[in-house]
């Protein structure tokens, strides 16, 4: 699992520009320290998806009337629910440099975010292959906080997966996940291949975003 350098630079606001040597060295340093500190873990579970009369979705762990999620999951009778984290060690590193070197803290944040993304991609690729062998196709992962899929679904999702006990993801009062480099997502399981290709950044409709790929 390695962070995509272009992603790191994109998070740092470089757009398509190249980094100078000092920053390149710094990113490499951050990558090394992060791979030492990270303890990537995940939990996942397949659930039946029910569409209720009022148009809302119920997968057992949470109910939501998110239109965007409903669209992403159209035609899916099952979903794969996941939670993944880089672990508490990464937050310690971020805190450490947040106090000792702001530059490094910022580069560390960007690198850790890219690393988390890489970890999720790695997991999803594995699942995609596994399900394709059974003749099933996975939709792109969709997380609470995307579009109108509310963060409040996070709690039910994490409780259902026992993510606190099993991989140490907790929520703050304001529904933020801790460790900070954690992701939850719902992935539609479909019998046909359409709608299964768009992933990541491009799934978002905010096309004027400064950080868009």
């Amino acid at each position: 699992m390695t962070a995509d350098r272009r992603e790191v630079l994109r998070y740092l606001g470089y757009g398509g520009h190249a980094a100078d040597e000092a920053v390149t060295v710094l990113i490499a340093e951050c990558e090394n320290e992060l791979s030492e500190a990270a303890t990537p873990r995940f939990v996942s579970q397949m659930l039946l998806l029910r569409r209720l009369m009022d148009g809302s979705l119920d997968c057992g762990f949470f109910r939501t009337d998110s239109k965007k999620l409903s669209k992403t999951l159209s035609g899916c009778g099952q979903v794969l629910v996941m939670a993944a984290t880089l672990g508490a060690g990464v937050d310690r590193l971020l805190a450490r440099y947040g106090r000792l070197s702001l530059t490094k803290a910022v580069v560390m944040q960007a690198t850790a975010a890219a690393l988390m993304e890489a970890y999720c991609n790695e997991l999803c690729t594995g699942w995609r292959e596994e399900y394709e062998r059974k003749g099933l196709y996975l939709r792109p992962r969709f997380s609470p906080g995307y579009g109108d899929f509310p963060l409040s679904c996070q709690e039910g999702l994490l409780n259902g997966l026992q993510a606190g006990k099993r991989i140490g993801i907790t929520l703050t009062e304001g529904s933020l996940m801790m460790p900070s480099k954690s992701v939850t997502a719902v992935i539609g399981i479909s019998e046909n291949k359409e709608f299964c290709t768009v992933t990541g950044c491009e799934i978002c409709e905010k096309t004027d975003c400064a950080y868009r790929r």
Binding site: L12, G13, G15, H17, V23, L102, T103
Partner: peptide, 14 residues
């Protein structure tokens, strides 16, 4: 102007 990027700005600040 977009010729200096965030990490460089911060290194200078530090």
């Amino acid at each position: 102007a977009g010729t200096v990027f965030l990490p460089q700005l911060l290194m200078s600040a530090e």
